[in-house]
Amino acid sequence: MDVLIHLFVGLHIVGIASLLGGFLTQMKAMGRGTARFVPAMLHGAATMLVTGVILVGLNQADDQHVNNIKIGVKLALLIVILDLVYVKRDDETVDKRLFGLVGALTTANVFIAVLWT
């Protein structure tokens, strides 16, 4: 079971890298007001959602403690991120504040995962 959990943790990290990497590649464009949500951001957020749900299930099946409040907060942030990226994915440009919000929520999600014990 540990190998499977570690596999999905790795895939979860790939998802966050895709989401955050897509955001970071658009930072210069955000300064010019021409940033857009790239497909990597949508795919990364979707990967995080799927692998996160699987991880919760695997950890519970392995009788490990799961902090449901922490998972709920992370899920709520991820749903907001996924909704914003999905709805605005075809727009030529995205408002700076909205684009920055996705980056801030993504970063908050990372810090919640790491610091909330």
Rank of each mutant, 00 (worst) to 15 (best):
residue 35 A to W: 01
residue 34 T to R: 15
residue 113 A to T: 05
residue 25 T to E: 06
residue 45 A to W: 03
residue 116 W to E: 02
residue 60 Q to V: 02
residue 45 A to S: 10
residue 59 N to W: 07
residue 27 M to V: 11
residue 41 M to R: 09
residue 113 A to S: 06
residue 51 T to G: 09
residue 46 A to E: 02
residue 30 M to A: 15
residue 4 L to H: 02
residue 61 A to T: 01
residue 40 A to K: 07
residue 41 M to P: 09
residue 68 N to S: 15
residue 116 W to R: 03
residue 98 L to Q: 14
residue 96 K to T: 04
residue 78 L to F: 11
residue 25 T to Y: 06
residue 85 V to K: 11
residue 6 H to D: 14
residue 17 A to W: 03
residue 48 M to T: 09
residue 104 A to G: 01
residue 68 N to Y: 13
residue 31 G to I: 01
residue 18 S to G: 13
residue 38 V to P: 15
residue 85 V to F: 14
residue 50 V to T: 13
residue 46 A to F: 06
residue 79 I to C: 14
residue 42 L to G: 07
residue 74 K to M: 14
residue 73 V to N: 12
residue 71 I to P: 05
residue 17 A to N: 02
residue 75 L to A: 14
residue 87 V to M: 07
residue 9 V to Y: 09
residue 19 L to T: 03
residue 17 A to I: 03
residue 22 G to D: 01
residue 79 I to D: 09
residue 15 G to R: 00
residue 90 D to C: 08
residue 99 F to W: 03
residue 107 T to A: 14
residue 78 L to W: 14
residue 80 V to F: 10
residue 93 T to D: 07
residue 72 G to P: 05
residue 12 H to F: 00
residue 36 R to W: 08
residue 93 T to R: 06
residue 10 G to F: 05
residue 109 N to Q: 05
residue 47 T to C: 10
residue 3 V to F: 15
residue 107 T to D: 04
residue 9 V to N: 06
residue 21 G to F: 04
residue 94 V to S: 06
residue 101 L to W: 00
residue 38 V to K: 15
residue 9 V to I: 13
residue 28 K to M: 01
residue 75 L to V: 13
residue 101 L to P: 11
residue 36 R to D: 07
residue 14 V to H: 05
residue 28 K to F: 03
residue 54 I to H: 05
residue 18 S to R: 01
residue 80 V to M: 10
residue 36 R to Y: 13
residue 94 V to K: 01
residue 39 P to Y: 07
residue 103 G to C: 04
residue 72 G to N: 09
residue 25 T to L: 11
residue 95 D to A: 08
residue 109 N to V: 00
residue 99 F to Y: 11
residue 7 L to Q: 07
residue 95 D to F: 00
residue 38 V to N: 13
residue 88 K to T: 13
residue 56 V to L: 04
residue 22 G to W: 02
residue 24 L to F: 10
residue 48 M to R: 07
residue 54 I to L: 10
residue 77 L to A: 06
residue 54 I to P: 02
residue 98 L to H: 10
residue 73 V to S: 08
residue 74 K to S: 06
residue 51 T to R: 10
residue 110 V to A: 08
residue 114 V to W: 15
residue 18 S to D: 04
residue 46 A to Y: 01
residue 2 D to K: 12
residue 37 F to E: 14
residue 19 L to P: 00
residue 78 L to C: 06
residue 63 D to S: 02
residue 51 T to H: 08
residue 86 Y to S: 12
residue 26 Q to I: 03
residue 2 D to Y: 14
residue 42 L to E: 00
residue 16 I to P: 05
residue 89 R to M: 12
residue 24 L to H: 04
residue 13 I to L: 14
residue 116 W to Y: 09
residue 29 A to N: 12
residue 31 G to M: 08
residue 62 D to A: 15
residue 20 L to Y: 09
residue 27 M to A: 09
residue 80 V to C: 10
residue 73 V to K: 11
residue 3 V to Q: 15
residue 52 G to F: 09
residue 65 H to R: 12
residue 71 I to G: 10
residue 101 L to T: 11
residue 47 T to M: 13
residue 12 H to Y: 00
residue 33 G to V: 00
residue 68 N to I: 14
residue 51 T to E: 12
residue 112 I to C: 05
residue 49 L to S: 01
residue 46 A to L: 08
residue 30 M to S: 07
residue 92 E to W: 11
residue 39 P to H: 09
residue 80 V to Q: 03
